[in-house]
Amino acid sequence: MTFALPAIFAILTLAGAVAALVLRNLVHCALSLVFAFAGLGGVYISLGAQFAGLAQVLVYAGGVAILIVFAVLLVRERDEKQDHTTIRWGNLLSGIAVSTLVFIALARCILSSTGLHNAAPTAPVAEIREIGTMMMSVDILPLEIIGVLLTASMLGAVIIALKEARR
């Protein structure tokens, strides 16, 4: 059971990512992206990182995916048919070639390196209380910086997306 659960979630994640890559309809892409993000959260939880998994589900499947759906609705093309007919085969083939080469390089590195094939050690326990203590003591500076960065980026996003005032 401990073997099967992360594998199922990993397959769900990859299936969602493939669907987001190949589907034509933008709304379908965004919805399959929810599956990919939630599956990744499931992988985290089944690997013992409960807090990171819950944060993944809340922020990605709950926040970022909804943001993407709203952006898709706001950025509707008036002539969607036109985009779909103009497939440039040169771009398509070179993109597929680059992606395949990157995957082959990564897979060769992973499979040829030693020390990665050990059996799983006993599952570490990540207590949320201990994570909070670490975050408020050792990592207090990154936490504050992330807070400032999130505030600044949200204000910046609102200002960028605002309509420009008429002169």
Partner: peptide, 13 residues
């Protein structure tokens, strides 16, 4: 885990 938490916050921004 802490790195992932900060990374998720950065990705949201």
């Amino acid at each position: 885990i802490l790195f992932v938490l900060f990374s998720i916050a950065l990705a949201a921004a």
